[in-house]
Amino acid sequence: MRVSPLGTAVVHRGAVGEAGSMYTRLLAGRPDGPLAGAMFLTWERRLGVADPGGPTFPICRSDDGGRTWTEIAAVADVARGAGNRYQPTLLELPSDVAHLRRGDLLLAGNAIPADGAFTCLVLYSSTDGGHTWTFESVIDEGGPSVYDNRSDSTTTAIWEPDLDVVDGALVCCYADERRKPDGMLQTIERRTTTDLRTWSDRELVSGISNRYLRPGMFVGTGEMPDGRRRAVIEIVGPRDVPIHLLESADGRSWGDPADLGRLLVADDGVALSGTPTISWRELPDGRVLLVALGRHSMRDGREGNRALASLDLGETWTSFELPTPATRAIHGDASGYSQTIRWNDAGELVQATSVRNAIGSHDVVVTRATFDVDATDPIPAGDR
């Protein structure tokens, strides 16, 4: 599989001293829905953190396949007044849910004050294509925004919401550090709602009584053409932060929570490392292309800039070079912290990522590329 870049747009230029920009999240309007042809982008933009209300989640829209982008909204934290600071994610509703209709947009993220006193997963909706947003509810609230993955950690934060619709209910899966009394350093939990206001009790999706293995950052595919769902998680603890694949037949049960799924490794030995995402599209010939990304790739202990692709619904994988050149590193403030791929109406691959710039911050860029799924893409000599 081989990608050929067509052009890159710089959506946001990171300023001196700006933290982030991370968690770039693309959404492409469903071809059969009211947002067909439109693409949306959000990320962590932490400028102005000293302002009243804190940072906001930007919403950018493209109506030309990702070539150009316009900011159409900045979603402020009206739930806690602390600032919409971390880990935004977008969903276009595939069907009606509560008072919202198919094609409406949902935005979830982590509202956190400047002093990190708490973590709070919040939900917003838009019924006009992303221009205006309404607060729906607090999904869950956790402890202080402190990251500590040591085996003796006592942190209680919650992180990284992921949204799906299952049997008419909205489902949110997220990372949760509050099961430490059960010997679990971090787990993936799930809550559901049918009215977008009240949420069910927490249910364990993934977690193991081993304080050296920390499953986190669940990102799902939604329902795929075979009726099943796939999801990627990261396993923090091992140095290479491996990415595992989970599967569900119904979107509710993901199997034994202690089963951390299958390690994602390509046929050429390339694996993914950290902050995973996953996406898919049906090709014109009927095949289904599944693509998984990490913060970077690993092969023989070396970092790379590759992703994994599958044409058999995740049974086997092939690696390919990503179209946005960037320096990737397992440690330090590198590029690509939680990036995404989608496809535009022309069938071009569209990658949104962060790239470390010359002043020590990060730009948010979007690259379009052609994607030849039947071509051979050798690993660059420097990555061998």
Rank of each mutant, 00 (worst) to 15 (best):
A249Y: 15
S273L: 10
R150F: 14
V166K: 02
L41N: 04
G336D: 08
R230T: 09
E203I: 07
G103C: 03
P380R: 14
D374C: 01
A76V: 06
G33N: 03
I158N: 05
D333Q: 11
L123I: 08
G286M: 09
P55T: 13
T68W: 13
P325H: 13
P380T: 11
D167T: 07
R384A: 14
G314V: 04
L27C: 02
I278E: 02
D77R: 04
W43E: 02
D167I: 09
T134A: 07
P238W: 12
D250F: 12
I330P: 08
V241I: 15
P181W: 07
M1S: 08
D240K: 12
D256N: 12
W254G: 03
I208D: 03
R384F: 15
A50K: 14
V270H: 09
A98H: 07
R190W: 06
Q339V: 00
E44Q: 13
F135P: 09
I278N: 01
D201Q: 13
A19D: 08
T324K: 09
A73S: 05
D64L: 07
D51E: 15
R178I: 00
F135I: 10
D77P: 01
T155F: 15
T24N: 12
P58V: 04
G222C: 06
V364T: 06
R262N: 03
E177Y: 15
A326D: 05
R202I: 07
M184I: 11
L107K: 05
G65K: 08
I59S: 01
T192F: 10
V355I: 14
P113K: 07
L213P: 01
D167V: 05
A98D: 01
T89L: 05
T56A: 15
D32K: 14
G207Q: 06
D345H: 15
M298D: 04
P52R: 15
A111P: 02
L121H: 02
L91E: 02
E282H: 11
V241G: 06
S4Y: 14
G116K: 07
R384C: 14
R239M: 10
P225I: 09
P181I: 06
P113D: 05
G129I: 00
V3P: 01
L35M: 12
C173L: 12
D63L: 13
G294Y: 07
S4A: 05
S279V: 03
L260C: 09
P113T: 06
T318Y: 13
A36E: 03
T119K: 10
V365I: 09
A76L: 06
G14W: 02
M217D: 08
S126W: 00
A369N: 09
G301V: 08
E203A: 13
E303H: 14
L313C: 08
L123W: 06
G48P: 03
R328Y: 14
A82I: 03
R85W: 13
H99I: 01
V366W: 03
T156V: 12
G17T: 09
P257Q: 11
T42N: 11
E348T: 02
R179F: 05
R306G: 00
A50L: 13
A98M: 06
K180H: 10
D285N: 13
P34N: 11
A369S: 10
T8W: 04
V11L: 07
Q351I: 01
D128K: 04
Y337I: 04
E71H: 10
D250N: 14
D182R: 15
A329I: 10
